[in-house]
């Protein structure tokens, strides 16, 4: 057995011929670490998560999860693998027609035959671990964005997954909620011996909690390393991203074949 829970080897993916999303990506996610995948919007970070969870299939390359090649796995194996991983979606993706209790109990109801008392205990424990005890009876519409995400985190952990994936968990949160989520991610990873994949573009928090960072741009990995290595990298794109500069390798201007003058009527094409 390798020491990596997930391995991507030369993976490429496209929804159709015209739009290549990922080109030749290779990543290694070692057991027990927090690995961050960073990059600008639309660079294919979320697609990597979808590939790992088997929601979409790679066009070429090999993805190994828990020692199984999931690019060639059948639905049954995929389901087994999915029960070992939890995923937190960008805005939580709580089921709006179910109460907080039913949301967290959902994976338990579907995959286990626990009795009510046991489920009550598990739900209470999970809620306590995200600091929201007593919200069992509330509905998602009654929760703030930060609370909804913590409930979703509790739901993702209901089956005690070995691998947690977070899809931009920090987007649109106030600084307090943001730090709460970050603290939870770190705590859960360390206490439960989980492995964590963190997809985000929030620099300071990631530098604080991640063990290893992959930097992506236009569907390719352009830099990788520990936070320390990344912060001193020579790569212009990464530097621009970390420092948040407007001008640099990431174009500020939209790449159009018509010039500004054309729109002012001074020039014909």
């Amino acid at each position: 057995m390798s020491e990596n829970i997930i391995e991507l080897k030369n993976v490429s993916f496209a929804y159709n011929e015209n739009k290549q999303i990922l080109t030749d990506i290779s990543m290694k996610i070692p057991y027990g670490k927090i690995v961050a995948i960073m990059g600008g919007s639309g660079c294919g970070k979320t697609t990597v998560l979808k590939l790992i969870s088997g929601q979409i299939k790679a066009n070429s390359g090999k993805i190994t999860a828990f020692g199984t090649d999931i690019t060639r796995a059948n639905n049954k194996t995929l389901e087994q693998i999915r029960t070992k991983l939890g995923m937190l979606f960008q805005f939580g993706a709580l089921f709006t027609d179910l109460s907080v209790y039913d949301n967290i109990a959902f994976p338990l109801n579907e995959h286990t035959k626990l009795n009510k008392t046991l489920k009550d205990i598990i739900v209470a424990m999970k809620l306590e671990s995200v600091g929201l005890s007593g919200t069992q009876e509330l509905f998602p519409s009654e929760l703030s964005g930060g609370m909804a995400r913590r409930i979703a985190l509790a739901r993702a952990m209901a089956l005690d997954p070995e691998l947690m994936m977070y899809d931009e968990p920090f987007t649109g949160l106030d600084p307090i909620s943001l730090n709460t989520i970050a603290m939870l991610i770190k705590k859960l990873n360390d206490n439960l011996k989980q492995t964590t994949i963190l997809v985000t573009h929030d620099i300071p928090i990631t530098m604080k909690i991640a063990d290893y960072i992959y930097f992506m741009s236009n569907g390719k990995v352009i830099a990788e390393g520990t936070p320390k290595e990344i912060s001193v990298t020579e790569n212009k794109s990464v530097q621009q991203f970390i420092n948040g500069e407007v001008n640099g390798p990431f174009a500020y201007k939209y790449n159009s074949n018509k010039s500004y003058d054309y729109y002012l009527g001074r020039e014909s094409i």
Binding site: K50, G86, M87, A93, A152
Partner: peptide, 22 residues
């Protein structure tokens, strides 16, 4: 449509519950 837009169907899929069934 809204469940799809808010990723609820994806979330269900990741929990290995088929949204078609559920």
């Amino acid at each position: 449509g809204l469940m799809k837009a808010t990723e609820q169907l994806d979330a269900m899929n990741v929990m290995s519950v088929d949204p078609i069934k559920r």
